[in-house]
Write a protein that binds this DNA or RNA. Structure first.
Lengths: 198, 198
DNA sequence: TTATTATTTATAACAGTGTTAGCAAAGGTA
DNA sequence: TACCTTTGCTAACACTGTTATAAATAATAA
């Protein structure tokens, strides 16, 4: 009796159509505009059908988060195998990570929970400008009193800010059995490395 | 005629009460649970009154974003003035930045648009574990072939990931008249610095 | 003080959202 | 053909941000 198999196959097809419809809607209108009703309309089924495939909306989005990490991992492995020495491997992987993020913005936004609503708003905010200038001038001073006097302050500032923001936001997302004391060490190590490098 | 003055004063009071009520609700239930109706209930006014003070919900949240940056700037200036040499200043500021983020989570979450819904979900995701391991082993190789053989791979990994994630997310939030070529330089410079430091 | 005008405030609606209970229709089995 | 199980839809619930409209209040003029 292939009936059960056919049913499973059909169910899988609907599940797949939910995901492809959702992904299309996300690409057209972004994550914030994705809704269960829109997916239901797209797949020409009623709303509750979706809930027989996914526990809730979050479960659908988690599926894409997994997809995103899978894709990223593949890209990173590829980059890794393109070099032999660890230093080159790491450089290639950093490049790959960067490219992935911007070639798959929808994935990356979801993976790291970037809301993106502040994007337009942040530009015209004097408080942000102050913050930039504040750090930048200090870095200028640092450069002036160092060997590498020709270093670009704006560039170094961005590195520094990224380092800080990265440390913080990673720690917020990934609280994986890692004591606070170690995060303190990470911060100190990173900052010391940055300064030594200037 | 002090009537106009009194009216302005009363209007300001209502405006202030909206913000304090909103802030209390955020601290109790988080940003995702904040709603206009809840604020209206708290201040014992009807919903449209809120819209006579703020254009929309986003405007209320922007007010807190500004507050957040103001607070951060104050903290950073204080940290800066606690030292004389740039290197020490920067170290103190990094520390202050870190402390601010975690002592004012609500602010930082809003300022950087961290959705925080992935927080619990991310922990039990094998894809994330793979990603961690992948980078970590490469860093282990890097350490093994370097002078500082006693360096902590887990620590270095976190530094590296933070650097990458920071670069990406900062660039996503802050697209301030900065050509892509410069971001490439930032990335290269940061990674080179990290490797040299290992 | 009363009538008129301007301001302030609330009710109720619109168009959405995620989620689910209850019922009708179709599919498979005896 | 009669029964039962599975499937799928309608409609509702409890929310959300936002706004048009109407009522109540306060300030001004007669």
């Amino acid at each position: 009796m292939g009936i059960l198999e056919r049913k499973l196959r059909q169910k899988e097809e609907v599940r797949e159509s939910i995901l492809t419809a959702a992904w299309q809607l996300v690409q057209e209108e972004g994550w914030s505009m994705l809704s269960i009703r829109k997916i239901a309309d797209a797949i020409e089924y009623s709303v509750p059908v979706i809930y027989s495939h996914f526990e809730n909306k979050d479960a659908i989005m988690q599926e894409f988060t997994k997809d995103g990490f899978r894709k990223l991992n593949t890209t990173l492995i590829q980059a890794q195998s393109s070099a032999n020495h660890p230093a080159e491997q790491l450089t290639a992987m950093a490049q790959a990570y960067w490219e992935f993020a911007f070639q798959n913005k929808e994935y990356y936004q979801l993976m790291y929970g970037l809301g993106m609503p502040t994007c337009e708003a942040a530009r015209q905010m004097p408080e942000l400008g102050n913050f930039v200038q504040l750090l930048q001038t200090t870095i200028k001073d640092l450069i002036a009193g160092s060997k590498a006097v020709d270093a670009d302050p704006f560039l170094k500032f961005h590195t520094f800010w990224s380092l800080l923001h990265g440390l913080v936001s990673i720690n917020m997302v990934d609280r994986t059995a890692c004591p606070d004391s170690l995060h303190q060490l990470v911060l100190q190590d990173a900052v010391r490395g940055f300064i030594k490098n200037v």
